[in-house]
Amino acid sequence: MNNLDNFDKFSFSRFMMLAKREIISSKNIFLMELAVVAGLIIIAEFFISWSALPSLNDVKEYPSCYYSDSTCVSIIFVLGIWGFAFLANIAASLVCLKLSNKKGRITTFMTVGTQGEKYLLNFLIYDVFFVLYFFTVWLLVDLVRVIYVDMVYPFEGKWVLFYAIDQWNWMVALGTIALFLFSQAFYTLVSAFSPKLAFLKAFGLSYAVGFLLIPYSFFCSVVLIDKSFSGESNVIVIMASSVMIIYAIAMQLLAYYRYKETDII
């Protein structure tokens, strides 16, 4: 800390101090966001389970539970990815939210830390902390579902975590990560240039262009559920993923440059 040259470089301890500061000073907002995430997951799982699970009175008439079908579990898995991507994009659109007014810009730019630390801070909170939280809540909620299904249909319920691990392959992982990085970079970029209502703007723009929703829909709905690619399809996924990751890096760099060069007026 005494060496000024080192002080002006990225410091992990200061980065964590900034994260602590951000979380404590915005704890009400974060708690609300966490509650909303948990609520959405519970509601989604509840409706899926409700529609897929026969009533208790009909057990004898429906000995084969839809829910033990791998396709139904896939739907939960895909919805989980969708939900997470949606939340990640909301988070990305909030990256530069504090720059939307003069007071916020003054507070942000006068905070002691490198510009990189301040920029990455939001990703630490939303991409690391929120990812862990999202999947933890999702798995816990699904565990409740599995316990319930097991009570009604012993040995039929499947926990999505295990199912996901069973079904996972590198192409799915690469494609998911590439799509995630690409869409998040896009929402971040919109946030950097126009922090107010960035999510709506980015969503509207991406919807209008269709370049995010169409491949997402295709990937999630067809590829993940049908698992219909192999061989040549792998090459396409690798190429498409590489292009998306390169674009994502370019958009993040542009967003960071914009963030760094923003003035308060």
Binding site: F7, D8, I106, F109, M110, G113
Partner: peptide, 13 residues
């Protein structure tokens, strides 16, 4: 906007 400069300045807007 270096950290070593920012820690030396406090602005009360």
């Amino acid at each position: 906007r270096l950290p070593s400069t920012l820690r030396d300045i406090f602005l009360v807007p």
